[in-house]
């Protein structure tokens, strides 16, 4: 019997069962609290949204590389749209907005072709240059630099950096043993979101000393360090099971990824604070906008990808090392 798609590996299946198990447990605890008169609506919305987010990622991931590329492209579109909608763009730049959206299918096309070299330079070099050039063609120079800066920043975070998540599915298949590429994507997503949640829980439970009060007033040293330790432990142990990384080098991932996730989170907070917005939209009940959920991932995805290619793949990610 042949399936139109490959069956998920045992590694991926185990991870998926554990994710849904954990979420189910959290939901049961919430329902138990609610019966005793506790549990906030905010928490209910947050948990409900997690069921949707996780399913929305896992189903395409199990269907294969192309469905996952398509859903990630749509997520990039939503995040880019949110970014351009909360920033003070000029009315004249509507054609540039269209051009910015068009980089998403273009980049997806080159990822689909496994054109790693083109993927690497498409947005950071060519979209960078072409958009700036296009902006000169209608001759409006007032606030030229902040306006093009918004586009560059939006494209780098929401299109290019998130593109790395999709590209994992197009890495040479056999390099991860029988676990497959989907397990690598799952690992990146779990580690990034675990770091967000662990920082939040440690901070909520033990947080005292503020870490960056003018940027992110709720973040504390206790949350940061607790989250770091939790995520690092997870990466060091689970990383070698789900990805091609091996034990001593998994310590490098363990040390860096929680730190970079934190930096992604506070960087987006700094931008939102500058713009005077709390959430990037109301798309995800209990979470805010897509960009609020993706902020850490826009920083962890490229770092994770490069570390992985550097340690476990051949030149241009064409072969296993």
């Amino acid at each position: 019997m042949s399936f139109p798609f490959s069956l998920p590996s045992n590694t991926s299946l185990t991870a998926i069962v554990l994710i849904y198990g954990l979420l189910g447990l959290a939901s049961l605890i919430y329902l138990f609290q609610k019966q005793r008169g506790g549990g906030s609506d905010e928490l209910a919305a947050r948990l409900g949204s997690w069921w949707v987010i996780i399913t929305l990622m896992i189903v395409p991931l199990m269907l294969g590389a192309l469905p996952f590329l398509l859903i990630m492209s749509f997520i990039s579109f939503v995040a880019l749209k949110e970014f351009l909608s909360i920033t003070p763009g000029r009315m004249e730049d509507r054609p540039i907005v269209v051009a910015a959206y068009l980089t998403i299918p273009l980049q997806a096309f080159f990822i689909w072709l496994h054109a790693y070299g083109i993927f690497l330079i498409l947005v950071p070099v060519y979209a960078f240059l072409v958009l700036a050039y296009l902006m000169t063609t209608y001759g409006k120079v007032e606030r030229f630099l902040p306006s093009i800066g918004i586009f560059h920043w939006a494209l780098m975070t929401t299109v290019y950096n998130l593109g790395y998540v999709s590209y994992i599915m197009f890495l040479p298949g056999g390099c991860n043993g029988t676990a497959g590429n989907a397990a690598i994507v799952l690992f990146l997503l779990i580690a990034t979101q675990l770091n967000d949640v662990a920082q939040y829980v440690w901070g909520k439970s033990f947080g005292k000393r503020k870490i960056l009060p003018s940027v992110s007033p709720n973040k504390t040293w206790e949350g940061f360090i607790g989250g770091w330790a939790t995520t690092a432990l997870f990466i060091a142990i689970v990383g070698p099971m789900m990805t091609p990384m091996q034990f001593p080098e998994s310590l490098l991932f363990a040390a860096l990824m929680p730190l970079v996730g934190f930096i992604g989170d506070v960087t987006m907070s700094a931008i939102k604070r500058d713009l005077g917005v709390k959430d990037t939209s109301s798309l995800i009940p209990g979470h805010g906008g897509a960009l609020d959920r993706l902020d850490s991932l826009t920083f962890t995805a490229p770092l994770f990808f490069h570390l992985l290619v550097f340690t476990s793949y051949g030149p241009f990610a064409m072969s296993c090392s």
Partner: peptide, 20 residues
């Protein structure tokens, strides 16, 4: 907010923006 950016008076092509 933003409907005027997506489709301002006198323009024909709507550009995607998040409406507030």
């Amino acid at each position: 907010q933003n409907a005027g950016r997506a489709l301002p008076k006198g323009k024909r092509v709507p550009v995607p923006f998040v409406f507030t």
